[in-house]
Amino acid sequence: MSSVAIKSKGFDFKAFLANNGALVGLVILCLALFIATPRFLTAANLVNVGIQVSTIAVMAFGLTFVIVAAGIDLSVGSVAALSAMVSSYWVSTAALPGGLAIVIGLLVGAACGWVTGAMSAYGKLPTFIASLAMLTIVRGLTLVISDGRPIPTGDAVSFLGSDVGVIPVPIIVLVLSAIVAGFVLNYTVIGKNAFAVGGNTEAARLSGIPVKRVLVTVFVISGIFSALSGMILAGRLDSAQPTLASGYELDAIAAVVIGGASLSGGVGRISGTLIGALVLAVIRNGLNLLSVSAFWQQVVIGLVIAIAVGFDVFRRKNVKH
């Protein structure tokens, strides 16, 4: 969408740099860490980063749809928790077959997304407010169901946090999610509609695009991915905690915007979001390896967000001249 690459013979390195700032940043970051510490480029550490990144990235994939449609979804962390909790609750109390538990979790996520989307599309609430309300409502419901205590997950959800051979399941889910999300965003009417609505809602409406339905759909997608993310997280812990994924919405938003999406809508890529999530995870991992205090890590992450987005704003301004 925002690509400005001009077709010329050979490879336009400048244009590539300008369009893939986050990727270039990630590569530099990895090189720096490779030089700084021998512990970075080990299989065990990279797998660790992969697992770390999976929960945020999967959540951020769904969020990308909402942000492309010029909305925001603050409820993703809470929805992740409720989905994991309901799924575990059914397994432990009703002894449902494992596979069904995952389906129930995803349905809970979809339902939460539908409510948020409907509040903003039909109730005319700004998406910020609608999803802020859902953030506390859903977190509250999670506490109500669990009575504030962790619930053990069933086998199926635990599987999401386990390994297949040497490959952790979270990484497999991450790759599959990226492919599905990228496909839906770029090749389906749902995805292209999200771009049109986010780019100019009124123009989309006057072209016959069902704007309200599009808004609800992107929130449902966001809810489903959040649920998946929540179940991965619970699976790794073998239990659904009532405070699961709390505060994750901020990391997910950061991943999406570092990946080049615009909060004013119409621009965003799944590959960008993945890179954004990787940047965050690699920085955290690197700072841990270098024994930087957790307090300073927060400062660094904040600066990275500001620099990454600042770079993007600067680039767009230059393109528009």
Binding site: S2, G199, N200, A204, S207
Partner: peptide, 21 residues
């Protein structure tokens, strides 16, 4: 500008909105 076009989208996409679905 405000009602007819998605300004950041391509010419092709803007022409295609009514036939996309």
């Amino acid at each position: 500008k405000t009602q007819g076009l998605v300004l950041d989208a391509s010419v092709a996409e803007n022409i295609g909105y009514a036939t996309m679905a």
